[in-house]
């Protein structure tokens, strides 16, 4: 099936982590998270597998780091309280490992949607980028269709797509220096 073929092909991209997603509940079949440096390589693999580009967009996870820290502290406090309640059982056990690694700084997430004309397989590729210097290499050489999508994402989030032929505003006025979809955007 196309999903398995894609998994083998994607193995070459070192930093790509593929995970299945329940199509009925989520709407896409595969989720790939890639390091920013290898976006072009992953896109090239997808291009060879015959996928077409559906959309490129961004999500601004402002405040995620603060929330993650608060959650981690709460979890540690709960663990400590539980340990106290159960009669001083070894309080020294580390905070539950399940808490995700707290990101050093808030992040943007660039979401690439690919789909396939023949096989039913929608792939969502996610790239995490630091908010202060959001740089992602462009894939417009591989997928010319992504050219406009990336310009639009740059308009709305300020994510710079390095190597993009022309990052001027697509939908916003020419002299726009604001990025409306950032969570800290004040009209």
């Amino acid at each position: 099936m196309k999903a398995n073929a894609l998994k083998q092909a994607m193995a070459k991209v070192s930093s790509a982590k593929i995970s299945e997603a329940p199509y009925a509940a989520k709407g896409f079949h595969l989720e790939i998270s890639v390091a920013p440096a290898e976006v072009a390589a992953a896109a090239a693999v997808l291009d060879r597998e015959g996928f077409f580009i559906e959309a490129v967009t961004g999500v601004d996870w402002l405040g995620e780091q603060a929330a993650a820290e608060k959650a981690a502290k709460a979890a540690a406090a709960a663990a400590a309280k539980k340990a106290a309640a159960s009669g001083e059982a070894a309080p020294a056990e580390p905070a539950p490992a399940v808490a995700p690694a707290i990101p050093a700084e808030d992040q943007f997430e660039v979401v690439y949607d690919f789909n396939h004309y023949e096989a039913l397989c929608r792939v969502t590729m996610r790239v995490r980028v630091v908010r202060s210097t959001p740089e992602v290499p462009t894939i417009s050489e591989i997928y010319p269709g992504a050219n406009w999508h990336e310009r639009e994402t740059h308009d709305f989030f300020g994510i710079v797509f390095t190597g993009h032929p022309d990052l001027s505003p697509l939908l916003l006025p020419e002299d726009a220096d604001f990025h409306p979809l950032r969570k800290d955007f004040q009209a």
Binding site: F52, I53, E54, A55, Y117, E118, Y143, P144, G145
Partner: peptide
């Protein structure tokens, strides 16, 4: 060209893509 640009609907079906 349709695949590279992500064209769908009658534009793609006019170029032989059954999607």
């Amino acid at each position: 060209l349709c695949r590279k640009y992500g064209a769908t609907g009658p534009v793609a079906r006019g170029s032989g893509i059954d999607y």
